[in-house]
């Protein structure tokens, strides 16, 4: 690779410039949010948002934490949902994935299609809502947020493909040792799944952390809401913004509502963004094996 040809030089130069610009393009809205949250309300209203704070102020954060009951409650709820949902989901998905890739499992194609079919056809919003609320009684129940995100056909598909790359001999050797299928899965297969678990786990964690839709549909009389729905309410309901700062000695109407919204956005998003560096190592290899070898 030492002999650089001219086309490669051009390609490389363009690559550096384009990727660099695209990375900045991805970053700007985040910078704008963060700097907005650290600005004074006044400067935002008069001069607009910018990528660096024009008049540094931590007022919005002070206010967000002045009576943090609602915010902290949302954090606790979201963290619980994310941790429980991700672990349970991972277990169920990998268990299903393992069974579905076993070529000696005569129902595997049928069950795979049974699962895949749900991406093609659905009952729709109204019937699902009625089923969930009228028959399952999940209205105003956190399970309405927790359960539907546990599994998805795409994640099962991803996991199945990944496990496929594990030599069948491992299963065979387990059988020879007299282990049952479930034992083989738990003690022989699961330990080899690290990159896949990291990859699928990241997707699951993201979907739990970013959940707002089911919360919007099913939760209405709760003290605490999942973080993103909490954010939704802060952004869209002037009244809730007021409630979330009740106790802080600020005259209603003098609330720095714009900076407060941005501070809440930063607080609601921060933790999940910091998760990525920890799983990045596994993530790329997980994607390589799972998604690519369809």
């Amino acid at each position: 690779m030492k002999h650089q040809d001219s086309s490669m030089v051009v390609i490389k130069t363009i690559s550096y410039i384009f990727i660099g610009l695209f990375a900045i393009f991805c970053l700007i809205p985040f910078l704008m949010m963060v700097s907005g949250s650290f600005s004074s309300e006044e400067v935002i209203i008069t001069k607009g948002l910018w990528i660096l704070p024009r008049q540094f102020s931590t007022e919005a954060y002070k206010l967000a934490f002045a009576s943090p009951k609602l915010l902290l409650g949302s954090y606790a709820l979201t963290i619980t949902l994310t941790v429980c949902g991700t672990s349970l989901g991972l277990f169920l998905i990998s268990m299903t994935g393992y069974a579905l890739q076993r070529r000696d499992f005569f129902l595997r194609n049928k069950i795979s299609f049974f699962i895949y079919f749900t991406t093609l056809f659905s009952g729709g919003l109204a019937p699902t809502y009625l089923w969930m609320s009228k028959y399952l009684h999940l209205k105003d129940n956190y399970l309405a947020v927790f359960l539907p995100l546990l599994m998805s056909p795409w994640l099962i598909f991803l996991m199945k493909n990944f496990i496929k790359s594990i030599p069948f001999e491992i299963t065979e050797s387990g059988k020879i040792d007299g282990a049952g299928d479930f034992r083989i899965f738990v003690s022989l297969i699961l330990p080899t799944l690290k990159p896949a678990l990291a990859t699928v786990g990241l997707f699951l964690a993201l979907s739990y952390w970013n959940e707002w839709y089911n919360a919007m549909l099913y939760l209405s009389n709760k003290s605490y809401y999942p973080l993103q729905y909490f954010l939704y309410r802060i952004i869209n309901m002037a009244n809730y913004l007021k409630q979330s700062t009740a106790g802080a000695q600020v005259t209603v109407g003098n609330l720095p509502s714009n900076t407060l919204k941005m501070a809440t956005a930063v607080l609601a998003t921060g933790p999940i963004v910091f998760l990525y560096p920890f799983v990045q190592k596994y993530f790329i290899s997980g994607m390589t094996i799972g998604a690519v070898k369809g």
């Binding site: 002037a238 009244n239 209603v252 109407g253």
Partner: peptide
Amino acid sequence: TGDSRDQMYAGK
């Protein structure tokens, strides 16, 4: 999506 009543209370 602001609250015009609060804005009025605040003189805005």
